[in-house]
Design a protein around this nucleic acid. Sequence first.
DNA 1: TTTCGTTATATGGTATGCCAGAAACCACCA
DNA 2: TGGTGGTTTCTGGCATACCATATAACGAAA
Lengths: 228, 228
Amino acid sequence: MIKAQLEIQPIEEVQSLKSRTYEALKVAIGAMKIYDAGAELRLDERALSLQFGVSRTPLREALAQLEQEGLVRIAPRRGIFIVRKTKAEILEMITVWAALESMAARLATEVASDAEIARLHGLVDTFDSDAIEEHMGEYSDANIRFHAAIIALSGCKLIAEITNGLFTHVRGIRQRTIFERDRARRSIVDHKEIIEALETRNGERAERLVREHTLKLRQHVEQFVQLD
Amino acid sequence: MIKAQLEIQPIEEVQSLKSRTYEALKVAIGAMKIYDAGAELRLDERALSLQFGVSRTPLREALAQLEQEGLVRIAPRRGIFIVRKTKAEILEMITVWAALESMAARLATEVASDAEIARLHGLVDTFDSDAIEEHMGEYSDANIRFHAAIIALSGCKLIAEITNGLFTHVRGIRQRTIFERDRARRSIVDHKEIIEALETRNGERAERLVREHTLKLRQHVEQFVQLD
DNA sequence: TTTCGTTATATGGTATGCCAGAAACCACCA
DNA sequence: TGGTGGTTTCTGGCATACCATATAACGAAA
């Protein structure tokens, strides 16, 4: 007998103003080109509360969370400032990223299924052609997704969480990072090697390749990106 | 000519109630044995605001930060609950720790001075004797400081920051972790090997040793610590 | 006695108002 | 004209009052 079951779907949980304000602020800050000279880094509580249409209380709680996350700095009776990361801090973030993603690669060789690993090809092989420079935008996206995929394959939620947090900060820099032709091409070669190491379940090698790959980025940023 | 200079010292910066409440709550939560069965995990805003002698506003901002940090969960109109980490989450934290500290060890071989590395002996050689079991408390402290020292030697502030955050969560577990005699003894052997790798500036080896050392802890917790 | 509906209460969510301190502004004096 | 000191204003910190909802308590009906 077939029961006519009620289609139950979770009640649309309208999030609190605090959390919605938090998200909105995060997006807004992410969209700002805070590294452009003369960018306005000051936030005004009252102005924001008007813009968002909420009172200062939930707004301030959202700001407290963003402060904890390191996105803004609250100076008592001075103002609220978007934090501009120094180059040294960016380099540290990339270093931490290297540590975490390489560990993720090692874990992936232990826990990911063959099918899951095989799916990585889709994020790399597309750009096999020599016409990379024409698809830099797409490549940049695929590049990010490739690294996120490895982290996902590790099954370690915490690594995903932390690297996500780092990404929030590094995103601003990305706008100013120039991928010259050779870097993109060599990056693809690296990615293929990484996939191969994962497929052969060579944890040691996968870890090393990912680490070295990311440290190349570190070196590149250190050498060519000007911030301060 | 010697000037009679005014001895200027920075004015005692009285922190905001928010940040002081944040610190106090963090300490209070850390001191709680939240993993004991029947432990009270619910926090009451109004009661806390009375206990701390502050209004709910700064208290709530502090709680918002703790929520961001993952120490508490705020359920709308239900209550505020101290987050009990699952065993799986603890294991992930140790994994992340392994990734970060091993990277720190690698960095330390590149940037730390000989003198700084030599100072590590002080945290290990003391326990050379076979009477470790009589000084478990001290050893536990020295053990923690040893790992913190390696991280400090890397010069990477971000690694220190993240591992500190992890430590806040793992501290609660530590109370329930039994260090049996052999683990302590073998731990000291590991530490000596690590120091030697650092002294010989063998980054590859230092990284591997630290990683394996921490993954041993992971394995131990996975096998012997019961939480859920 | 049990169950269901109603009411009361407890608890977090939000708005608002006032306060204190910092910075900007301005007037006055040298 | 330049600098100093007072005053105003702007801004975040904090307290409090009220609101909405989840849960508990209670009572009536079956």
